[in-house]
């Protein structure tokens, strides 16, 4: 079976893998000239279903709990399993209790344990929550690794391609996110920064709770830290606003004042595709299966959605065979 995957974001790449592993001849067509520039490129890369449950519904946990295993198996070496640390400024201590009551899979940590987990945060926070089952990856490196693996498996990539002019496939999977024509879809703007400082190091993503501006900081290689992300009901992909930048930087500074001396090496904006319930969907129409609405859970939920889409395509194919 020949399958065309439209879109080389995290949804497209994971779908290509699931199909290729099951024996399909897969071609990926991406409108952009290279990997990146899409919402996945600006993602945090946290595989944190239990933390996300604070503001997401149960399916995010059910569909996301195996994501770290998937990425670890498919892209060995990309996943760091060090959990997530959640802290709050002393005056927002109530937020920590609220977060704890909305989530599971965590345990309380005190000042001493925070110091053991993240020595650079020693003495800065008296209480926190550790989600030991969670993991993280660098989205850009993981996408590149997955791309290389797919190429090695024989998957063909066409970058800068107009998928409308590519034909000769039995099936198509539409993974174009915001570019898909779906009236139910809306964009939720997310702004992020990448800071670089050799003066602080973190071993795991840290979430700083705040009643209005909750942020996370995910450590990356070469002393870089990704800080994200705003959530704005807007489709605009325009540059990061001064206000958002101040919120993100303010939170970074609150986490550790040394971030005040960090270099801002990048600012980025992604528009997350979301359905009204903020949950992803796999939908079929004629010869096309669409994966969309991954919202802020691309790396977390794409493997499960890719599996669903592949199941759908291979089951359809089997039922066709039995009918004919």
């Amino acid at each position: 079976m020949k399958v065309l995957v439209k879109g080389a974001g995290v949804a497209g790449l994971t779908a290509a893998f699931e199909l290729a592993t099951r024996g399909a001849a897969v071609t990926v067509a991406e409108a952009r000239p290279s990997l990146g520039g899409n919402a996945s490129w600006f993602a945090g890369g946290m595989l944190a279903p239990w933390c996300e449950r604070e503001s997401a519904e149960q399916p995010v946990v059910d569909l996301g709990r195996d994501a770290a295993d998937w990425w670890d198996t498919v892209t060995p070496g990309q996943v760091t399993r060090a959990g997530t640390l959640v802290v709050a400024a002393p005056r927002d201590a109530g937020e920590l209790d609220r977060f704890a009551s909305r989530t599971s899979g965590h345990r309380r940590v005190d000042e001493d344990e925070i110091a053991l987990l993240e020595p650079d945060l020693a003495g800065r926070f008296r209480r926190g929550l550790l989600f030991p089952g969670e993991a993280h990856l660098d989205p850009r490196e993981a996408m590149a690794a997955l791309h290389d693996r797919l190429v090695a498996m024989g998957v063909e990539f066409h970058f800068g391609a107009d998928a409308r002019h590519i034909s000769g496939f039995d099936r198509q999977i539409d993974c174009t996110g915001m570019a898909a024509e779906d009236d139910g879809l809306r964009g939720v703007r997310g702004e992020m920064l990448i800071l670089r400082t050799p003066d602080v190091s973190l071993s795991r993503p840290v979430r700083l709770l705040h009643p209005r501006f909750p942020i996370y900081m995910a450590p990356r290689t070469n002393h870089r830290f990704m800080i994200g992300a705003t959530m704005i009901e807007s489709q605009s992909a325009g540059p990061v606003t001064a206000r958002s930048m101040m919120e993100l930087l303010g939170a970074a500074y609150a986490l550790h004042p040394t971030f005040g001396e960090a270099e801002i090496v990048e600012t980025g904006v992604g528009v997350r595709p979301a359905f009204p319930d903020n949950l992803p969907r796999v939908e079929t129409s004629r010869d096309t299966v669409a994966i969309n609405g991954l919202y802020r859970h691309g790396f977390l939920l794409a493997p499960a959605m890719a599996r669903q889409a592949a199941d759908l395509i291979f089951n359809q194919d089997r039922s066709k065979e039995t009918c004919s």
Binding site: R189, S234, S236
Partner: peptide, 16 residues
Amino acid sequence: RREMAGGKAGEKFWSL
């Protein structure tokens, strides 16, 4: 305030 970023960029949410 925030949704106005980029003209009618918040239109989808407003229509909801």
